[in-house]
Design a protein around this nucleic acid. Structure first.
Lengths: 215, 215, 215, 215
DNA sequence: TATGAATGAGCCTTCATTCAT
DNA sequence: AATGAATGAAGGCTCATTCAT
């Protein structure tokens, strides 16, 4: 075992990682101090050196997910893409094998926290709020840049986007073989985009229309 | 206690009702035989006269929800409405206080079953499939009747509809006060409808376009 | 179901038979009122019409076994055989498939009752005493008739006979395939007989010896 | 309570000892985690620090008995005695108050394991096999050394020896006062010895016979 | 800093038995 | 003569957490 004598911060991160895996694979009540400790190669008592309670781990886990998710979204934003391409990229990232392997997607952890203590719920709430706000901002920008129909309500669109992610994950969880995450998300994406932009042919007509109005 | 000596069927229904409340208010691991029995005013041993196991209750609960949901959807279909109006009605029903009070909505129970035993998961899967199929059928009909754009993929649209319900419920659970179910669902609905039908102005342009092409 | 509405006595016998099977196949704590009732096709409450308690059934079972065993031994005695041939017959009966099928042999039920209530233990004690007494009587007769060495202590010999049955059954229970009841009992029987009678060659010498003494 | 905070190995041994007593005094279904814990002065939860399950204790108990029994037999063998004297010593040890007090004799534990799980049964089977093999070896040696009749089948003789132990214990359990273990075993032993060796008088005749044949 | 022993509350489930109908 | 509903005690076991060493 080379895992012994890790620094405090490293041990914490290790435990958080294990926590993510446990929740992903068996729901939040698969997250027990025993399993956490055993997987980390420490005693149950030693666990309490690094976290004050089970609640503490869950909160840290959610916060870490919030941060990572925020970073991921921001990294996509850095690239100078159209708003819709940004959203498409984000959706693809959610469905990528990478995110799945390292924690199934934030959706699962989020749902898991729904009925926990007040503090945990608050963290879950922050995660939702942060996520929706980020998506909302992208859509708002898209409207400003004329890429998205100005009649679209950014908040609702963000909710819808989140709904796509959620329903896709739910379906996938219940029947992983028949519903690969990536496939369905593609056709859902086209539908979603349709609701935001003008259909291609309509768009052209739209432009013509606008031009004729100008004249 | 005046509740003593109920008939088998009545006790079963009573227990299912309590089960629904317990899951709604505290997630599936708030559903314990102890709580179930105490709320029903019987001993834990007596519980086993009416259900063979904890799993049994959950399965019955999910099946009952599946049935009720199916009936609800069918009852809406009976009325000879446009497809989109049907869907709107269904969405409103999901958000109505009635459904909430008697079980928070099927979404919560569904999510709760994700990490339970194989049998429970199977029931959950049936619930999702039934629901999506019902919505899909309505959309398919709408396309046939020319009320919905024929380019729309019914399956994806159903998923999107389900996503709307899910994200709305999730948000509401985390912050019930700031996000009353009914309000948000309204604006989400308009967005959803837009993605299925032709936007009004575009529709006209569309017609014009078609006519000009004819000429 | 034609089993319903049996006469009291028939129902009792039926239950005793089921009890025997349950104990034989799973030890005495496989004998539960639930299993007894279900196998008999009656409710648990109805069981108490025929027996006053679980203890009652066990006592009746042991008594019935005591009676049957006594009859079996007596039936063998009727035939006018040599004492040793009687014992051999009895041993073979214990190992016969018939007795096994209808209750594995009294040995198992006997052992099962070792740590039950005082009353049950008393019945078990009666069974042992009756059995040993019967065997003892046969041996005593054999000595009187000059078929068995007069130095043999009938009580001890009976115990030894009982020991053969017990150890054979024990071995068989733990490894039924490698130790068929009938095979081993045969060679054990020869060994036992040797300890009672004179070895053939010695017997002849013995006779010669006696004759020479007479002269 | 002054017994608190024992070391793992000590607690384990203590629990095994209690287990032996419980089984001895009330059969295997008197061995409950509750009783085990109470007698050990710890909580039921604490029990699980030292054994993984009830099955685990039973297996450990049987294995420990197997080891001790093996050691006992081997210690007797060390002394350079005649085979028959060895067996007599072993029989006496089984009946000695020492072994009784510390676990009633292996016979009871053996019978207790008959209807338990596969793993427990396997351990019981090992115990029987080891015991019979040990006795068999002693008898085989006796035959080789000319102390035991060469016509004797060692396996059957071992079974017979085991049978003596079993029937003696059974009788004693059902009626401890009227059947002290030691008394009966003595006369049984003589009978058993007779079946292995030549009767004294016959032996002399035998010798004469042999001599006359030589002439 | 880490461990090993222990706790108390809770889990699901089965048992023999009772009693009103 | 039988049923259906209920009981109280006990079973094996897991949980998050504490504390002396």
């Amino acid at each position: 075992m080379t895992k012994k004598r890790l620094k405090h911060i490293d041990r914490q991160n290790q435990i958080i990682d294990i926590a993510r895996e446990l929740v992903s694979s068996g729901g939040i009540h698969n997250l027990t101090i025993r399993k956490l400790s055993h997987h980390a190669g420490i005693t149950e008592a030693a666990f309490y050196r690094h976290f004050s309670s089970r609640e503490d781990v869950i909160i840290c886990l959610i916060n870490e997910i919030t941060e990572k998710l925020s970073k991921t979204i921001n990294s996509v934003l850095d690239v100078n893409l159209k708003s819709l391409d940004c959203l498409e990229k984000i959706l693809n990232l959610h469905c990528s094998s990478i995110e799945l392997r390292q924690g199934l997607s934030f959706v699962v952890i989020l749902q898991a926290s729904e009925f926990e203590t007040y503090q945990i719920k608050t963290c879950g709430n922050n995660l939702v709020k942060m996520y929706l706000k980020s998506i909302e901002d992208i859509i708002y920008l898209g409207i400003k840049k004329g890429e998205i129909d100005r009649n679209v309500d950014p908040d609702s669109a963000a909710m819808m986007f989140f709904g796509i992610v959620q329903s896709t994950v739910t379906r996938w969880i219940f029947d992983p073989e028949h519903h690969p995450l990536s496939e369905k998300s593609r056709s859902l994406w086209y539908l979603f985009r349709t609701s935001l932009e003008f259909l291609d042919e309509d768009l052209e007509l739209h432009k013509l229309n606008l031009e004729s109005k100008k004249v």
